[in-house]
């Protein structure tokens, strides 16, 4: 191999290794406390939407094993949920109580071969006997440096922060 080629190869290998090891996509979600007589923790769904192709990458779902209510995450249901079955794609878990919760999607296999481009991270919340809300966070993948994208919900979601690292 010519010297410059091997240098290039080494560079690419280094980038790939860095991607595999450190590319980071973490989310912090505030679930607001509600002054209501009857409270049920909201169901939450997370997914990525490619800005151009509209392709959906499911990231996760917090629910309480009651499939009856999954359709109330209406956007998630239409985009991806209704085509899935248990166990749902991504990181699934139980619903969370009010407070700030952190979820790290970095290790998801779907992220390791995620094509570069512009995306939206979509968070949808639906609460029984409550409301429904969708929050969208635009970002570029892969990140060129440490980035924080923030959006604020108005009812069912508080502050939502996306933390990215290359």
């Amino acid at each position: 191999m010519r010297p410059w080629l091997s240098l290039l190869a080494a560079l690419f290998a280094g980038v790939a290794a860095a991607n595999a090891a450190a590319a980071e996509l973490r989310l912090e979600v505030d679930i607001p406390r509600m002054a209501v007589a009857e409270y049920h923790a909201p169901y939450l769904a997370f997914w990525l939407k490619h800005a151009d192709s509209g392709e959906i990458v499911p990231l996760g779902l917090w629910y309480d094993d009651q499939e009856k209510w999954l359709k109330d995450l209406r956007l998630w249901w239409r985009r991806t949920g209704r085509g899935q079955s248990r166990p749902y794609d991504g990181l699934t878990g139980a619903t969370r109580r009010p407070g700030t919760h952190s979820v790290d999607f970095s290790e998801l296999p779907a992220l390791s071969d995620l094509p570069e481009g512009d995306y939206q991270l979509v968070v949808e919340a639906a609460r029984e006997v409550g409301g429904r809300e969708v929050v969208r966070l635009p970002f570029q993948w892969p990140a060129t440096g440490n980035k924080t994208v923030r959006a604020d919900g108005e009812q069912e979601l508080g502050r939502v922060q996306l933390r990215l690292a290359p």
């Binding site: 209501v36 007589a37 009857e38 049920h40 029984e128 006997v129």
Partner: peptide, 10 residues
């Protein structure tokens, strides 16, 4: 028979 204040589920 749910015993909750005004806002009642279901």
């Amino acid at each position: 028979l749910t015993l909750s204040p005004a806002a009642q589920a279901h």
